[in-house]
């Protein structure tokens, strides 16, 4: 089966707005855990020619496809995008740079090789940059391009990030429409590591159609499955992005973003099982209707505890929030497996 048709219909309805190609889609600074210590980060979302998988339909939850440039950016544009973003890190004595393109940084048809090289070279030449992370779909990873990147980076720590989403091929195919398999991820991860890069796996809590419990168990299982291949695992909490199949269902009351209790439970269980594996989750949009949420009273506290845990890896941080709505969440876990195509809304 394929959901691509349904996704494609939505994609065709939404147009990418013309915007300057010399500015990144977004950039911001934050703090990440690198080798057990907290490090400043600069995240840059480049406007690229766009995710090729996404343009052909793509993933059911992904609204980033609309972040691409209306015209493919030139080499100068890429330089300008990076320069603009780097200004935000001016004051950091040292920092890590995380590069996203809303697609695959290593897809040469999306980000031209010259642009890739110029970006990496700029970062290599900046002594304040201590680590570089780039995101890509696994099928674009080759022995050669990992080696090339490392060479340009002059062996600065280099991490490849993959949107694995789940270790279940069924869910990745029938719910997310991701277009690659767990095997593809393993191959790319092994290739990366063999050549000296580290690996970060992004998982996705509660893609379409799964009950709260199925989603929770999926991530716990996926962490177990992915841990041998990943140096860090980050769990994204599905939120309702514009122009996605997720949004179309959510608008009809046929999707509810995950509970924050679920990710708290996942992290508790997974951290106990993998004490040395850095686990993190940035609860984007937490507390809003479109984002992961508990009740109105506790969502922001729960989100804070998640952010804290992501930096400390201390399970105590996850025990700080409690709320009456946790009982409702438990009931949802108990019942939602048996609602047959209707999420439990609250």
């Amino acid at each position: 089966m394929t959901l691509n048709k349904a996704v494609m219909e939505i994609r065709q309805r939404i147009k990418v707005k013309p915007s300057p190609t010399d500015e990144p889609a977004a950039s911001w600074t934050g703090i990440d855990l690198v080798n057990g210590t907290q490090v400043n980060t600069l995240t840059v979302i480049f406007k690229s020619a766009g995710c090729r998988w996404g343009k052909a339909g793509g993933c059911t939850m992904c609204g980033y496809v609309y972040d691409c440039a209306s015209e493919p950016p030139t080499l100068e544009d890429y330089k300008a995008q990076l320069a603009r973003a780097m200004k935000k890190a001016e004051k950091f004595p040292e920092f890590m740079v995380k590069i996203f393109t809303s697609g695959s940084f290593l897809d040469e048809l999306e980000v031209p090789r010259e642009a890739r090289d110029v970006i990496l070279k700029t970062l290599a030449d900046n002594p304040r940059v201590v680590k570089v992370l780039v995101e890509t779909r696994p099928n674009f990873v080759t022995e050669e391009n990992v080696q090339e990147c490392l060479e340009i980076l002059k062996n600065k720590p280099f991490e490849l990030a993959f949107g694995l989403e789940t270790s279940s091929d069924r869910i990745r195919r029938d719910s997310i429409n991701k277009g690659f398999t767990f095997e593809d991820f393993i191959r790319a991860a092994e290739t990366s590591r063999k050549n000296g890069a580290t690996v970060k796996a992004y998982l996705m809590l509660k893609p379409l159609f799964l009950s709260e419990r199925q989603a929770l168990e999926d991530i716990v299982r996926s962490i177990d499955d992915a841990s041998p291949y990943a140096d860090t695992i980050s769990i994204n909490l599905c939120n309702v992005q514009k122009g996605t199949l997720v949004e179309a269902l959510w608008e009809k009351g046929q999707y509810r973003p995950p509970w924050l209790w679920s990710i708290i439970e996942i992290l508790k269980r997974a951290k106990a099982a993998h004490p040395d594996l850095p686990l993190m989750s940035d609860p984007v949009g937490a507390g809003s209707k479109r984002g992961p949420h508990n009740c109105k009273l506790c969502s922001s506290d729960a989100a804070d505890s998640l952010r804290m845990f992501s930096l400390t890896q201390n399970l105590e941080d996850l025990n700080k929030t409690d709320c009456e709505c946790k009982e409702l969440w438990k009931k949802v876990l108990e019942l939602e497996d048996f609602t047959y195509g209707t999420p439990i809304l609250d």
Binding site: L3, N4, A248, L249, Y255
Partner: peptide
């Protein structure tokens, strides 16, 4: 393997 009705059978 349940789906909500917004997902039409043909897709």
């Amino acid at each position: 393997q349940a789906y909500p009705p917004a997902i039409p059978a043909e897709s």
